[in-house]
Simulated assay, not measured.
Amino acid sequence: MNAAGPEADVIDAWSIPTDQPPDVVHHLYGLLDPGERERADRAHDPVEGGRFAVARGAVRLLVAERLALAPADLVWHYGPHGKPAPALPPAAEPLQVNWSGSGALALLALAVGRRVGADVEQLARPGVGERIARRHFPAADAALVLDAPTPADGADRFTRLWCRREACVKVHGGRLAQGLGLPLAGPSPLRLADAAPLGPGPLWLADVPVPGPFRAAVAADTDRPFTVRHRTWTA
C-alpha cells in the first residue's frame, strides 16, 4: 500500500473487543439510542446482548469523537439494506462509516470522502466453506479454498474471501447475494476493476490483521490504494 498521505487515502480500522466487564457494558448501553437498546434487550442471551451494546456504544464513542459530538447526540441514517451513515453536523468532514461484528470482536472502519465497507468474521468451521465456495465462488476463489493443504487452511482462506465479499457489498450498501461471484482471490491489497452487479467500480480492498481466531477486511470505492491505520479500542 502507499505510504500514509492525506486523510482521504487513510482508512481508520478499529478492532473492538466486545466481551467487557459489566460496568463497561452498562455504561455503553446508556449511550445507545432507543432502537439500539431495544435490539440489545431482545438478544437471545445476555452475552450477545452485552456484545451488541459494547459494539454499538464503542462505535458511538469513536464516531462522535471524530465529529466533535456527544455520543448520545449521534444520529444514524440507514440505507435500503441497512447500511448506516452518521448525520453530519455543519462543516464536518465527509465521514463515511461502516462496522461489523462476529462473536467477541467488532470492526469499525472510518473513511473520508469515499464509501467504505468493513467485515469481521470468526474462522469458519473446517468443511463449511468448501461447500459454499464450490457452489457460489468463481473458479479461482473456489480453487483457493478447495485446494488448501489442510482443512484448517481451507477454513482460513474461505473466511478471508468471505470477509472481502462482505466488505465490497457493504461499500455499495447492497445484498450479500450480489457479491458471491466477485473475483477476490489474490494478495492484499487488491483492486477490483468491475464491481458489477453491486455498482460501478473500481474498488480497492485490504485485509486487516485483527487478533485471535478472526479475519477481517475493508473496502472502498476508489481508484487509489489506501493505507489502513489499524488500532484496538480499549474501554
Rank of each mutant, 00 (worst) to 15 (best):
G50Y: 00
L182V: 10
A106G: 14
F158Q: 07
F137R: 01
R160I: 12
M1W: 04
N98F: 06
H81M: 01
P89S: 06
P197Y: 10
D119Q: 04
L184S: 04
R134K: 06
R60P: 09
L67V: 13
A111L: 12
V54I: 10
D207C: 07
A70G: 11
V97S: 03
D33L: 00
R191N: 12
H230F: 14
R37C: 14
P189K: 04
Y29G: 09
G179K: 07
V120W: 01
L31W: 06
P22A: 15
G82Q: 03
F158K: 04
A140D: 07
D12W: 03
G174R: 02
T18A: 02
Y78Q: 08
A185G: 08
P200E: 15
G201Q: 09
L108C: 14
P213I: 01
V116Y: 02
R131M: 11
P86T: 05
R39H: 08
D119E: 03
D223M: 06
G199I: 14
R135Q: 13
G50D: 09
R134F: 11
R224P: 05
A139G: 03
A193H: 02
A58R: 09
Q96V: 12
D33S: 09
L88D: 03
L88M: 07
T222F: 03
P211W: 07
R51Q: 15
V54M: 07
R191Y: 09
A217W: 01
L88E: 00
V218R: 01
P94Q: 05
V75N: 04
V145D: 04
A8G: 12
R51D: 10
R42T: 15
Q96P: 04
A92R: 05
Q96F: 08
A235S: 13
D12Q: 08
G117D: 06
G57L: 09
E130P: 08
R157G: 09
L110T: 14
L182Q: 00
E38S: 05
A91Y: 00
L161P: 10
L28A: 08
L110V: 14
D156L: 15
Q122T: 13
R135I: 12
S15F: 00
P189V: 12
E7D: 15
P46G: 14
Q20E: 14
P151W: 12
R125C: 12
A68Y: 00
L205W: 05
D194Y: 00
E7Y: 02
L123A: 11
R131I: 11
V97P: 11
L69P: 12
G35L: 06
L176G: 04
W204I: 12
R215L: 08
P84S: 07
G154Y: 04
R157F: 06
E7G: 13
P6D: 13
D223Q: 04
L190K: 04
W204P: 07
A196Q: 15
R135V: 15
R131C: 03
E65W: 02
L176T: 03
R115L: 13
G50A: 15
P86L: 00
D12K: 01
L28N: 05
L32C: 09
P80L: 00
A3C: 03
A193N: 08
A206I: 07
V47Q: 14
A43V: 11
W162H: 02
Q96M: 15
W204G: 05
F226M: 05
